[in-house]
Design a protein around this nucleic acid. Structure first.
Lengths: 408, 408
DNA sequence: GACGATTAGTTTATTGCCTGAACTATATGC
DNA sequence: GCATATAGTTCAGGCAATAAACTAATCGTC
């Protein structure tokens, strides 16, 4: 797992520290070390002790707690030359978390083990725009139950879940403030009903943020700082800084789609003017490319656009070129304000990359010269499953950060 | 990067927590409570215990350490009705830190006590653009020695210092990467020579960042999240998020001056195109207003501009109007990406506020509708002393965060 | 194949720090 | 002067990490 094993031997500010905090911090430190290990590598207590600089005695005691909590498992003996063979440690593969996603035209639920491997996943096509949120959640609860049962058949226990939604969310209140493409406003979600009786409960995430976290975990270059731009109906974003999601004071940072790229531009659905979304969002590109929605679904329209690009249709090409140029304007500004050095394109930006990339790079060079070599502009490594994987991974991560939550 | 500034003494990432961390954290917690108290209020051990939820026993022991370290002082008896009178606690007024500033045409040094009150300050006009950094630092060392001696005459000991510089800095390396307006590039500073033999050493800050921290401390509304825009020769910025400076992964976040506000705009000194600085920087405004630099100093030019505005000269008015509009574009984008809800104007933006404000607010409303009520757009509360106060305050803050650094 | 060297993991004594409860100190009010 | 109330200290108890000694298991070598 890619995460900074930050050993914070101390509670949030404002509350006194006591020795229990040290214990909790060190539990997290040890668990994090084991979670970080590459697949197939099973560190021993001694290795963890060396890596963390805790003593062998402390690690033994901490590992015992984690074994009892069911988070770790001992796995065989590692023989490494002389001396007593070590006992390998790994994340318990019988513990898992569920990731769920509600999008405009589908719902999806999947279970990953604590190492992030997707064990089961089911997607169900569904028009979620009509009928309000109640039936959507009911359908998702059914899908989740099904997936959970499948995992249970494999002997896997689900500890908690994460739900990703394309809109502004208030995670603490389990509330969706606004999800324009779903037509939801101030919707309170009964997350408990979605996945009953799980020890860690269910957390709520913004879709682009969740997807950004999934990228963080799966980036081949292991970048720990980047701007993720998710091109969906709206243009969303996730800011990853120091391997953490940056959500800002209000919790909704990363609205790259509403950076002003053309002060003289057109009105945006957000009420603003000249937002990136108005030139580089799916609808804007399709319209500029002259591809009518007609009776097509959105993904069919994108396919038609790709087809047109392959055919070299000038209108399609210039629409995408324009989108790339303006994307460069927004990302140059964002990257300079945040001082982030790499970019990850998701959604339709990834799909359109072959045509979008050159104008994007040119634009970046024009507006933020010398900052972005081509290799700093990457494509999504997880694709459409990003939101689901990110939501699940984030729940795992918060568990690794605070493993004591599972020891009663 | 300007200190992690988490309210607590956290060990380096990956280092095990031990009981010493608890002690350090609680020392900081207690000291922080006392530092937070309004001027004239001297909390007792019992009050601190109640506020922190530490036991009276722990607080007594922690306070003893802090007294011995010279950070706290007992002050008289508070009589509050029945019972044994309490002993007031306050930050030791005999301990202080020094703030220093190098700017284009002056150097400045001042001493504040730990509560942030400015005790002595001296400013010396000086052309720092010519002759390189060595004589500048020599002059500043002399000024600092003078100010330190003055403080010493008052019985005040200087514990450490902070230096603010208008440029990109690498605080850990005591290095100025680039300070365009000083003509410095990759300059290594001997900070120790600036203020010899202080227990906490001297830290380096970016000017706009330091000023932003000073605003944080002195804001009348107590806002803990804002974008500070410092209008100097360049347009700098400081992002304050959750009462912390946000410096980004590379340590140089907040370059509001290089947000693209006009993709079709002119070349910027940074190599980019259409940056805010190219339309709202001092030089840009003065040029647009038709005010020649001539033999004037920069501040004289600004005075001439204000004069022209008072006289209602159309060219000056429209130059400032344009600057305000574009400032709105940059701030709307920045505030949406960072999800920060209030703005603070410094430097010439504060000076020009009477003429700048209306177009700025209009522009904000146009590009980020419904986000910025007029009261969310404030003016600098500290003015020109901001960088100096911020540098000093930041040193105090890192001391409060980690008071054990003073107990040998 | 016994023995020393080597490495893994556990046990034990010690130390540091917080907690709670008992205790001392110093005021008010009747 | 005595009950009451509040501030602050002392002391025993417990938890968690550490260091060092100890047990466990394997390899290499004579």
């Amino acid at each position: 797992m890619v995460m900074p094993a930050s050993a914070v031997a101390v509670p949030e500010s404002g509350v006194p520290g006591s020795m229990g905090d040290v214990r909790r911090s060190n539990l997290s430190l040890v668990l994090g070390r084991i979670a970080e290990a590459p697949p197939g590598v099973h560190p021993s207590r001694a290795q963890v002790a060396a890596a963390t600089r805790l003593t062998k005695a402390s690690v033994s005691s901490l590992v015992l707690d984690l074994l009892e909590a069911g988070l770790l498992r001992e796995v065989g003996l590692n023989q490494q030359g002389r001396g007593r063979p070590s006992v390998g440690l790994e994340l318990n593969p019988a513990r898992s978390v569920m990731g769920m996603e509600i999008n405009v035209d589908y719902i999806s639920a999947g279970v990953t083990d604590l190492a992030g491997n997707l064990l089961v996943r089911e997607t169900q096509e569904r028009d979620n725009r009509s009928g309000g949120h109640v039936p959507v959640l009911a359908a998702l609860a059914g899908l989740a139950a099904k997936v959970r049962a499948a995992a249970g058949d494999g002997g896997v226990q689900v500890l908690g879940g994460g739900l990703a939604v394309p809109g502004l969310v208030e995670p603490a209140a389990a509330r969706v403030l606004t999800a324009p493409n779903l037509g939801w406003t101030n919707v309170d979600l009964d997350l408990g009903a979605l996945l009953p009786d799980v020890p860690l409960g269910v957390e709520l995430f913004n879709e682009a943020n969740a997807a950004a976290l999934a990228e963080l975990r799966h980036r081949p270059d292991g970048a720990s700082d980047f701007v993720f731009v998710s091109g969906e109906v709206g243009v969303g974003g996730g800011l990853v800084v120091g391997s953490e999601l940056f959500t800002g004071p209000g919790g909704h940072a990363g609205e790259v789609g509403h950076v002003v790229v053309d002060p003289e531009g057109v009105r945006c659905s957000c009420g603003g003017t000249g937002c990136l979304e108005t030139v580089s969002g799916q609808d804007a590109i399709l319209a500029a490319a002259g591809i009518a929605a007609g009776s097509r679904t959105r993904s069919e329209s994108i396919e038609a656009l790709v087809q047109a690009l392959h055919e070299g249709q000038p209108r399609a090409l210039s629409a995408v070129e324009r989108a790339g140029q303006y994307l460069g304007v927004a990302l140059a500004s964002t990257a300079r304000v945040m001082n982030v050095g790499s970019l990850v394109l998701g959604g339709h930006f990834a799909v359109l990359d072959p045509w979008l990339r050159a104008p994007l790079l040119d634009s970046l060079e024009r507006y933020a010269p010398g900052r972005f070599a081509p290799e700093q502009v990457g494509l999504s490594a997880v694709g459409q499953a990003g939101a689901l994987l990110g939501a699940a991974g984030s729940v795992v991560r918060s568990l690794v950060d605070a493993p004591h939550r599972l020891q009663y």
